[in-house]
């Protein structure tokens, strides 16, 4: 439990750093590190299939995509210093800037409060009687071996019981691939 807590805190720190860094390349790499630690957490939660996918797709491909996008745009965040200077020069714009950020912070904190209030009704972590475990999941565990012949229940659910979900997933990937190709092809002309 202590190890899990430490890993979760490292993830929160990494996420905060990725959001606050001015250098976008560093932010992308910290996000990749965040994903990799997430893969460790998923191994700790016994979600080995998810850990594999996260380590290869989340930490790998996302980071590569980010670096590829940064190589075709710019590495730094613009206007950071100028905004700091605006503190001195343009009082009205600066006031607007601060007001907007305080308003957004309030929105974020209210959302956080509502979500934490929502967790009060949630079953405790690891509760065997949680509603999530009492319906279809039991059948997947008991019957999937004889019904699908697969030893890994996650694979059985993914490709057999919920095969249409996976079909939808591949449709999404295909659509995304076409969209990326169409978006980037026009630029070269």
């Amino acid at each position: 439990m202590a190890l899990d807590l430490i890993l979760l805190i490292i993830i929160v720190i990494c996420a905060f750093a990725a959001v606050q860094m001015r250098d976008l390349l560093s932010a992308a790499l910290v996000l990749g590190a965040c994903s990799l630690i997430m893969a460790v957490i998923w191994t700790r939660l016994n979600a080995v299939d998810v850990a594999f996918t996260e380590a290869s797709v989340g930490a790998g491909i996302t980071t590569v995509l980010m670096i590829a996008a940064l190589s075709r745009t710019r590495r730094g965040e613009e206007g950071g210093e100028e905004r700091d200077m605006g503190w001195v020069h343009d009082g009205a714009a600066n006031k607007r800037f601060i007001f907007r950020h305080i308003a957004m912070l309030i929105v974020v904190l209210v959302t956080m409060g509502v979500l934490i209030y929502g967790t009060m009704d949630m079953p405790d972590f690891g509760d065997p009687d949680a509603p999530a475990h009492t319906h279809v999941a039991r059948r997947y565990i008991e019957k999937s071996r004889e019904e699908t012949g697969v030893k890994n229940f996650v694979t059985a659910v993914l490709v057999s019981y919920r095969g249409y979900d996976t079909l939808g997933e591949t449709t999404v990937i295909f659509t995304a691939g076409i969209a990326v190709v169409l978006l980037l092809r026009k630029q070269r002309r």
């Binding site: 998810v50 996918t53 995509l65 279809v136 999404v172 659509t175 995304a176 990326v180």
Partner: peptide
């Protein structure tokens, strides 16, 4: 429970697709 694992496998792949389109 294997069901959330299977759902989140799908979710991770879809999230990478949306990231790719957003970056493009």
């Amino acid at each position: 429970n294997p069901l959330p694992h299977a759902l989140m496998l799908t979710g991770i792949v879809v999230s990478v697709s949306t990231t790719a389109v957003a970056l493009a």
